[in-house]
Write a protein that binds this DNA or RNA. Structure first.
Lengths: 225, 225
DNA sequence: TCCAAAACAGGACAGTCATCCTGTTTTACA
DNA sequence: TGTAAAACAGGATGACTGTCCTGTTTTGGA
């Protein structure tokens, strides 16, 4: 399928690859997929080379070490994935609350239809690499931080419109990201996305909040949500 | 320090080890520590042997493969850790809500005083091994399940005492475990336990629950919690 | 057209890994 | 005390792994 990319063209008119930076992009594609599916340590450079159809010399030219490759995956791909699936949808949502709700629901629906759970790319790499290397840790921590900040900013925006006046932005964001990450961990381990829905519903009901008034309050809220 | 254990005794009266199953226990100790600190793949059998002061033959005698060793760590150590730090405290707590709150607070306090965060043992191994091997995955999923069930059972017990009538046990448990796991992931990545406190406070305020009534309700609740 | 630099090919290399094997010692039991 | 089985010692082994090195090809600018 990708033979025309790896094949060597003979004529001057045709370039070696049909798009610039194509080799680097292909390696990043394969590495992103492999690190996500098997993890960093379990993905050998040999496997990556074979899957990407790239020689050792080419790979080493673009990424001097395996660590450099992983750093590029984190900064260019994982950060973009968080941006795409979380930050941008929350920014576009009518409110922070509705944004979080809709992302939870969208991810749950996606996982249910595709049948198996690979987990959150950021969370997966964060667990494996945070303690292994400071550079990895800092890069990953920055993405987590930006993720939470985007949600907190949305709460602040809501507050300037007179809503969410009793909500602490940082704490709301921390709980949203933590419950999502944790739910994905369990979903990955159980290979079952239903825990995501459980978490979302518990979040909507404000389970930890009240001793007695929960049920009555929710009748009203279910219209709003 | 442990020389008297690994040293070979010469007399009949003295045993090779001063307690039965000592060698196996020591290997499990070292493996548990190493898997927690560096992960499964990053921990080589050679390192484990050296740290435990055990030869290859001895290790292989008790654990035929590295996988068997990891399975034993999961079933004997990780499960026990979850039991000790979560299940038992929740069972003993005056209510599910208070149990969850106190475990969160206790872990946060412990992390803050010891200065760095290694993460949740269950969560760490779950991320690395869930997709790698079905046997690992099933063992880990069982621990997660028992953890949630213990919290759900406590909610059910509260309900039989007339409390928590508006709370769904499964959903409450899912959110408690998910937010804890996710908060630990972030704390590990950021090497900062403060996100745990943020999550706990957001949980106590029921951040996701209400549009307008949050602040007023919390004034009342702060006495109860 | 020419040439220096970048991009890539392809194998070599030293090191590490998990596992296994053959002996030797200790234990449990009769 | 005698003996079979368990517990351990300690190295051998073959299969990777990540990295690097020397050529060759392609490219962009003069």
């Amino acid at each position: 399928m990708s033979a025309e990319i790896t094949a060597r063209p003979k004529s001057r008119a045709q370039k070696r690859t049909n798009d610039p930076e194509g080799m680097r992009k292909k390696v990043l594609d394969v590495a992103e997929e492999a690190f996500q599916a098997r993890g960093y340590q379990a993905s050998s450079m040999g496997d990556l080379m074979a899957t990407a159809g790239v020689t050792g010399g080419a790979l080493h030219h673009h990424f001097a070490t395996k660590k450099a490759l992983a750093l590029a995956v984190i900064e260019e791909r994982v950060a973009a994935a968080v941006e795409e699936t979380w930050i941008e949808p929350v920014r576009m949502a009518p409110s922070a609350r509705e944004g979080v709700r809709s992302v939870f629901a969208a991810v749950a629906a996606e996982l249910e239809q595709q049948g198996f759970v690979r987990g959150c790319p950021l969370n997966n790499l964060a667990h494996e690499l945070s303690l292994a290397d400071p550079d990895f840790r800092i890069a990953l921590a920055g993405i987590f931080s930006g993720w939470r900040q985007a949600i907190a900013d949305k709460i602040s925006a809501d507050q300037q419109a007179g809503r969410e006046l009793g909500t602490d932005p940082q704490r709301f964001a921390a709980l949203a990201v933590a419950s999502y990450s944790g739910a994905m961990s369990m979903a990955k381990t159980a290979q079952d996305a239903s825990v995501l829905r459980d978490c979302l519903m518990a979040l909507e009901q404000g389970v930890m909040s009240s001793k007695t008034g929960t049920r009555r309050r929710n009748r009203i809220l279910h219209r709003a949500l």
